[in-house]
């Protein structure tokens, strides 16, 4: 075993941009979700009533940019080959699950942005810069986007857990390189 980090994906392994974006988002997805649940339950007199939502929005916007970058990487670079041990059904399931993960991330992040930018409010990112609101406006935009934000995030967490369990199953039961290649570890005998 050896850690080999390359810029581009190859047949057997992912390149470092995709690897780092993958793990960054893994942390962000779970972190933002539980931060979001905590925010919902905060009382008006909580000292963090204003700061935590500000951080949640800021990190969400940064993740939206990171997702854009990741989708760009996926477009310009090929994915590693499917593992020989994976049958037709496994490949189809994998592709569907990955596509859904991207779709749910995009939905959760965009709905969060649309909710926060309702009434034409720009969304501030850590007092660093702000993202202007979309030029369109919907009736009860914050409420509708809020519902979508909650349910897409919850579905994303459920699917992410399944995704992690599947990776562990491949690693410990099937003993293939599904998990190692997103860690940048190349096995001498694949």
């Amino acid at each position: 075993m050896a850690v080999k980090l390359k810029l581009k994906n190859d047949d057997d392994c992912y390149g470092w941009p995709i690897i780092s974006l993958h793990w960054l988002m893994a942390v962000a997805v779970f972190g933002l979700y539980f931060l979001g649940l905590y925010i919902i339950d905060m009382s008006y007199y909580d000292p963090n009533y204003k700061t935590l939502p500000h951080w949640h929005r800021s990190l969400g916007m940064i993740m939206l940019f990171a997702l854009g970058l990741r989708l760009l990487c996926r477009c310009v670079d090929r994915a590693p080959r499917a593992l020989p041990g994976h049958g037709h059904a496994t490949r189809l399931l994998t592709k569907t699950a990955h596509a859904l993960l991207y779709l749910l991330m995009l939905t959760a992040l965009l709905s969060g942005y649309v909710m926060s930018s309702a009434d034409g409010h720009a969304v501030a990112v850590f007092n660093w810069f702000s993202v202007p609101a979309l030029p369109i406006e919907m009736h009860h935009q914050a409420d509708r986007a809020g519902m979508l934000h909650y349910w897409s995030s919850t579905a994303l967490i459920a699917l992410s857990c399944l995704h992690a369990l599947a990776a562990l199953k491949h690693h410990f039961i099937d003993k293939d390189s599904t998990l190692t290649r997103i860690l940048g570890i190349k096995r001498e005998t694949p």
Binding site: M115, S116, A118, D119, H121, H140, A142, D143, G146
Partner: peptide, 16 residues
Amino acid sequence: AASVNTNQAERDKHLR
């Protein structure tokens, strides 16, 4: 009741 408007979309969402 849903027509409540305090000129702050996220507060109005909370009020509804």
